[in-house]
Simulated assay, not measured.
Amino acid sequence: MHTLQIIKGGKELSEAEKALILLHGRGASAEDILSLAAHLQLTGFALLAPQATNHTWYPYSFMAPVHENEPWLSSAIDIVQQTTAAAEKAGITKDNIYYLGFSQGACLTLEFIARNATQYGGAVAFTGGLIGDRINPHRYKGDFKQTPVFIGTSDPDFHVPVERVYATANILKQMNADVTEKVYANMGHTINSDEISLANKLVFNRQR
């Protein structure tokens, strides 16, 4: 399935205090999502952006039945796990590991952290939700211990129904995440400057 190929930026892992794992959208690249880092407050961060095979993490809509996106989805989740393990091997603890994704990468971000909930540094999902034709709470376990999570989206969005965003936020809140969701009227399938500002304020530059 997917082969681990990580494009890096920021500080060297061996010198970094924190790590940010960035997950690109369908049809995009690791380099594309890395370019977003220039707009984020990431002093002291190592940046790790894995590349999906054929620029797609899984073949169908994130709202399709989970089995239809297999085995690509499980392989994608494993790539995120391997990228996380690379940061941990360099001595960065989970509470200093952050996640960010856009669109398909946002869905993968949320699915990964919900399946492996613990106290992370934080997570940002630009237009995404938990994966599947319906949310199965039994798939998700752990305690986020107030990990800050920001989810931004448009209403409407052609790919991501706002109802799934709200349902996702509720699941994460039940798992003790500190979730902020922000819905923008008719924004389109993109990232706006307010989302960037909120990601910096609520997640990357949050005072502990």
Rank of each mutant, 00 (worst) to 15 (best):
M1V: 15
M1E: 00
H2L: 12
L4N: 09
I7S: 15
G9I: 14
G9F: 11
E12C: 09
L13G: 01
L13R: 05
S14L: 12
S14V: 09
E15W: 06
E17S: 13
L22H: 03
H24W: 08
A28S: 09
D32F: 12
D32R: 00
H39Q: 06
L40S: 05
L42T: 14
F45L: 04
A46N: 10
A49W: 13
P50A: 10
Q51S: 14
H55Q: 11
Y58I: 08
Y60V: 04
S61H: 09
S61V: 04
S61D: 12
F62D: 13
M63S: 15
A64K: 02
A64D: 09
P65A: 07
V66T: 15
H67R: 08
N69S: 07
N69G: 12
E70F: 10
E70V: 02
P71R: 11
P71Q: 06
S75H: 02
D78A: 10
I79C: 03
I79K: 00
V80F: 11
Q81K: 09
Q81F: 00
T83A: 07
A90L: 08
A90M: 12
K94I: 09
I97Y: 14
I97E: 05
Y98A: 11
Y98Q: 04
Y99E: 00
Y99V: 04
L100S: 05
F102Y: 13
F102P: 03
Q104H: 04
G105C: 04
L108A: 12
L108C: 11
T109C: 15
I113E: 08
I113M: 11
A114C: 15
R115Y: 06
R115W: 06
N116T: 09
A117L: 08
Q119V: 05
G121N: 13
G122S: 07
G122W: 10
V124M: 04
T127M: 10
G128Q: 11
G129H: 07
I131M: 12
G132H: 03
D133N: 13
D133A: 10
R134A: 14
I135F: 12
N136T: 15
P137T: 15
R139I: 14
R139N: 05
R139E: 02
R139M: 11
G142W: 05
F144W: 01
T147M: 06
P156R: 10
D157R: 01
D157E: 09
F158N: 11
F158V: 15
H159D: 14
H159P: 01
P161K: 06
E163Q: 14
V165W: 04
V165I: 13
V165G: 02
V165D: 09
Y166F: 07
T168K: 07
N170T: 08
I171F: 07
L172G: 14
K173F: 00
N176E: 06
N176L: 06
A177L: 07
V179Y: 03
V179K: 12
V179H: 13
T180K: 14
K182M: 06
K182P: 01
Y184G: 00
A185S: 08
A185P: 07
H189S: 01
T190H: 03
N192W: 01
N192A: 00
S193Y: 02
D194F: 00
I196Y: 10
L198A: 02
L198F: 02
N200R: 05
K201M: 07
K201F: 08
R206D: 01
R206N: 09
Q207M: 09
R208T: 00
R208Q: 10
